[in-house]
Design a protein around this nucleic acid. Structure first.
Lengths: 126, 126
DNA sequence: CAATGTGTATTAATTGGTTAATACACTAAG
DNA sequence: CTTAGTGTATTAACCAATTAATACACATTG
C-alpha cells in the first residue's frame, strides 16, 4: 500500500483514483477483495467515513460490489472494466491535448518528450 | 474574456491558469497591460480580493510586474517566459505519462489518439 | 450467546477558500 | 485641489465541502 495524499484534492477522490489505477493496470484483479473500510482507514491514517465515501462512490460506478457483511470486491463485469479503461485513456488524452495546444511545438517533438519521460520513469522504478 | 470556472478548484488558481495560458500561447504579449483588479473582478463577478490573490501570486512568480498606481503588465523577461513554457510543457508531459503508464497500450496507438483529438479540437474551434 | 468484524447511516465539527468591509498611499485628470 | 482610478493591506465573517464522531444492523465464530 503506497499512497501519498496531496492536500489540495479531497482524500476520498484520491483514494478512488488510487484503486481505479490498480484496476486499470490489472494489479487488482476482478473479484479480488478490497481492504475493509476500517482496515484501510487505519493503514492510511484517515477516517473510516472517508474510505466509506470513496467505496460508496466506486460502488455507484459499479467498480466494486458488496455482499452483506463481506468486504467489497472488484467488479467482474468486463463492460465496466473496459469502460473504465476507455474513460481513463480518453481523459488523459483530452487533458494532455488541451494543455499542449497553446504551445507552439511540433507533434514529433512532443512524442519525443513522451518517450523520454517514459524511459526515465521506467529507470526510476528499477 | 472567456473564462468558465469549475467549482472544485479555487478561483484564484483558475484565474492564474487562465492568464498563464494566454502568456504561453502568445495571445498576451510581453509588456501588455493586465486588466485592473477591480475591473476584472467586475467582469468575472468575483471579489476584487480574489483577483488580487491571483495577481499577487503571479507577481511572486515574476509573470507580471507592477509599477506604482499602474495596472500590472506581463513580464518582458525572456528567461521567465521560457521557463514558464518549459514548465508548462514538462508538467503536461509528466502528468500524461503518469496517467497512461498503468494502461497496456502501444505508444503508436497513443500518438494516434493524440492526433485524432487535436484534429477534433481544431474543428470544434472553427 | 457474546464478541468481533463486516457495511451503513446520521449528525456534528472542522477547514480552507472566498467574500466582505474598510482603509491607505499614490497619481493623473478635470 | 478635488475626484476618480490605480495597487495594497488588514481583519472579520461566511459558507460549502470535507472530515470526524458515533451509533446501528447484521453475520460469523469461538
Amino acid at each position: 500500500m503506497n499512497v501519498s495524499f496531496n492536500k489540495r484534492d479531497p482524500i476520498y477522490l484520491q483514494v478512488m483514483q488510487y484503486f481505479k489505477r490498480l484496476i486499470v493496470s490489472g494489479e487488482l484483479n476482478p473479484g479480488s477483495e478490497m481492504p475493509s473500510r476500517r482496515q484501510l482507514a487505519n493503514q492510511l491514517k484517515i477516517n473510516p467515513n472517508t474510505v466509506q465515501r470513496a467505496y460508496s462512490e466506486m460502488e455507484d460506478q459499479r467498480l466494486i460490489y458488496t455482499e452483506t457483511n463481506r468486504p467489497s470486491r472488484v467488479t467482474e463485469d468486463p463492460s465496466v472494466l473496459n469502460q473504465l479503461k476507455k474513460e481513463w485513456l480518453h481523459h488523459a488524452v483530452s487533458t494532455f491535448v488541451a494543455a499542449i495546444e497553446p504551445i507552439d511545438i511540433p507533434l514529433n517533438d512532443v512524442v519525443h518528450l513522451i518517450e523520454e519521460k517514459m524511459h526515465t520513469r521506467k529507470k526510476d522504478k528499477q
